[in-house]
Amino acid sequence: MSEVKLSAVLRDTFGKGSARQARRTAQTPAVIYGHGTAPKHVSVEAHGLMMALKTPNVLISLDIAGDGNELVIPKAIQRHPLKPVINHVDFLIVKKGEKVTVEVPVVTEGELAAGGNLLETLLTTVSVEAEATHIPTEVTVSIAGLEAGATVHASDLVLPKGTTLAVDGETPVLQVVAPQAEEPAAEAAEGDEA
């Protein structure tokens, strides 16, 4: 995973008013914390941040004006409920070589066996532990030829080297179910007459 470089400036004012002012100037308020350091309140260029956050678990190198660089990952993102705007981000400081626990999207590939079976997704993401600089962007699972009744568990997922599961291996991720037959219309009509 490559690093995304963004610039930031320290903030010394807090609250709704200063957050609104930052957003008016195309900045997104954020907090950086972790590794026993005091939280740093910063403003990050909004458009660059929004583009970077399109990648799950993106590794960001923040160049903080007058305060050096911090390597961070997004921990919590607050989005506006109606507009395509990020209101606030909490960043977690990470170090190269350090292991972090993150949620990684599960992506399927292939086609189910013939017969009209349905794929039921039980988990859209799976929790894994990986080195901060080598977080996988997704975990791909093949569903090719799976029959009704088949279940894919977390332990069945093929993870990249250096990545381990942070959930119980028996946790179901996907399952294949047979299509449900609909009740015939004639029986439903008889039930209405009674």
Score class of each variant (00 low, 15 high):
134 H>N: 08
45 E>L: 11
82 L>C: 02
48 G>T: 11
57 N>F: 12
113 A>M: 01
51 M>P: 02
139 V>M: 08
65 A>C: 08
167 V>S: 05
55 T>G: 10
144 A>G: 05
38 A>H: 14
189 A>R: 07
141 V>K: 07
59 L>H: 11
30 A>S: 13
84 P>T: 06
28 T>E: 04
27 Q>L: 15
75 K>S: 08
123 L>C: 04
92 L>V: 00
151 T>E: 13
96 K>Y: 06
185 A>V: 10
154 A>N: 05
45 E>C: 04
4 V>L: 04
177 V>M: 13
187 E>C: 00
76 A>W: 04
111 E>Q: 09
68 G>E: 14
53 L>N: 14
159 L>P: 10
145 G>D: 05
152 V>Q: 01
131 E>S: 09
106 V>N: 01
148 A>D: 00
165 L>F: 10
68 G>C: 11
179 P>G: 04
14 F>V: 15
82 L>Y: 13
83 K>R: 15
81 P>V: 00
188 A>R: 11
66 G>Q: 10
158 V>Q: 10
117 N>Q: 09
90 D>E: 14
28 T>D: 03
193 E>P: 06
159 L>D: 07
76 A>H: 12
133 T>V: 11
112 L>E: 01
182 E>D: 13
186 A>G: 00
59 L>K: 15
3 E>K: 12
31 V>F: 02
192 D>Q: 07
143 I>W: 07
27 Q>V: 09
188 A>W: 05
148 A>F: 00
28 T>G: 03
14 F>R: 14
68 G>F: 13
29 P>V: 03
35 H>N: 12
86 I>P: 01
100 V>H: 02
70 E>I: 06
138 E>V: 05
39 P>V: 07
13 T>C: 03
62 L>D: 08
26 A>N: 14
129 E>H: 05
187 E>A: 07
62 L>I: 15
26 A>L: 08
25 T>L: 13
26 A>S: 14
151 T>Q: 12
126 V>R: 02
99 K>Q: 13
150 A>N: 14
35 H>C: 09
126 V>P: 03
83 K>H: 10
8 A>E: 02
152 V>T: 07
127 S>H: 09
95 K>N: 07
50 M>Y: 06
155 S>P: 03
161 K>E: 15
21 Q>E: 13
85 V>Q: 14
61 S>V: 07
161 K>A: 11
107 V>W: 03
89 V>E: 01
28 T>Y: 01
179 P>F: 02
184 P>T: 03
188 A>P: 00
187 E>F: 11
49 L>F: 05
96 K>F: 04
156 D>L: 05
133 T>L: 07
132 A>C: 10
188 A>M: 12
186 A>K: 00
15 G>N: 12
104 V>N: 04
84 P>V: 05
32 I>Q: 01
150 A>K: 13
114 A>K: 00
126 V>F: 05
69 N>F: 06
50 M>D: 13
61 S>P: 06
124 T>L: 06
